[in-house]
Design a protein around this nucleic acid. Sequence first.
RNA 1: GUGGCCGUAGCUCAGUUGGUUAGAGCGCCAGGUUGUGGACCUGGAUGUCGGGGGUUCGAAUCCCCUCGGUCACCCCA
Length: 449
Amino acid sequence: MSPPTSSYVTPRTMSGVMELLPLEQVAFEGMIDVIRREFERFGYLPIATPAMELTEVLLRKTGGETERQVYLVQSTGSAEQGDDPDLALRFDLTVPLARYVAEHEHQLSFPFRRHQIQPVYRGERPQRGRYREFYQCDIDVIDRNELSLRFDAEIPAVINSVFAALDFGEFVIRLNSRRLLAGLMEKLEIEPHVAALRELDRLDRQGPENVIASLSKIGVTNDAAQRLLELAATGLRTGSDAFTLLDEIGGDNDLLKQGVDEMRAVLTLVREWGVPEHRFGLDLSIARGLDYYTGTVYETTLVAHPELGSICSGGRYDDLAGQYTKSRLPGVGISIGLSRLFWQLQNADLLPAAKSTVEVLVGLLDDAGLPEALRIAAELRDAGVNTESVLVPDRIGNQLKFAAKNGIDLYVVAGENERQRGEVLVRNLRTQTQASADRKDVVAAVQAQ
RNA sequence: GUGGCCGUAGCUCAGUUGGUUAGAGCGCCAGGUUGUGGACCUGGAUGUCGGGGGUUCGAAUCCCCUCGGUCACCCCA
């Protein structure tokens, strides 16, 4: 890529990674702050796991598909010796969690609620809004032996608080049950459950004709496929409509009866958790491709932007850490794909105007004013105001331009004129107003803005 | 991993059937304004036309290879 005559290497990142400019980074981290705050309001504790795991730990559970997407890690020394890579980058936060809980089971308290906000890595062909390194924001609850269905309802309550706080418009949490779907398939005499679930999950992308065709390939009769899709086509049912639909499905077999009963209980509990009726419902087309889900599954979409797809999804798994321990550790949780969500919001122009973490720029018009400028800045910092100091005098126009370009709303300066009068100038760039204040009142004048 | 499309300035692109020193808008920098920002005006910088090879008197333009990007599938956040 770089010309051989040039001594420079073209500065670039690999494709499929998200690197932001400072003001974008401020917005991104602002979202993380909100998400973490809401997670912690519900009692979820933070954990962090290493980006790398031992290959044998990471790949124990997975089938061929995920294995293909895992980045193997190896030191050059190890490679020179011809060793196999024994390290790999995590591709989600759930598998590391399983290892973590199994490893530290006896130091943890159950039910164990944890949140984890870290990047994960997938060796995929990069695509629109899909990354090879991206942040996941996960919460999960793990318990021993049995995990009450009440936790299945806590999860939507947390999601509700998170997205209400993020304030990107109305959203809806779609719930379904893998057990219920399995019961339905038993009723319709659809045999390979997992494969059929995956086909169902592709309904929105592939369209009904293709899904029926694929289903017939795995031995599902046309009639059964038709009836399955009819049910899936009912789409989202909120409020009492959800319960009506559950009544209609009934309970022709034990599995179906259990699934319907559980779903009924979960929906009732979500209501009791105080999630508004219009923000959650039953959607029989939600299947989730991941095969470790066994019960309730979730997907969340923005009402005004269905094209963005699911911005938060998860579910219940009856035995999270079966690969690592004899203990039976059921869990339920969700993951927000923050990098993709951020990219989508940015693209849909849904992010608020960029704002700096710097609240005040203290200007400098002449060298003689430096000591005073530094004192003013120190006073502001002591008062808890993030303050950036101009250290080399420049034209005031350039300083204001700098503040404006960098999302700083307030500009404070004590030039020669102000210093003689014992004043400071406080300019608000957003309201385009300014006023002089007594030098001693500078902190109050800034805080009044 | 499979398949399609595209590579010209930092970005979006124009470049007439191959024909002199390759252009525009936006952005960037400077000045207009030695104490007032987003507007306006003036000026400026930046390209081995992704790289290599070939055809030709002549290639950004045609051919081959290669690298990169991108989209769809697979899968998923």
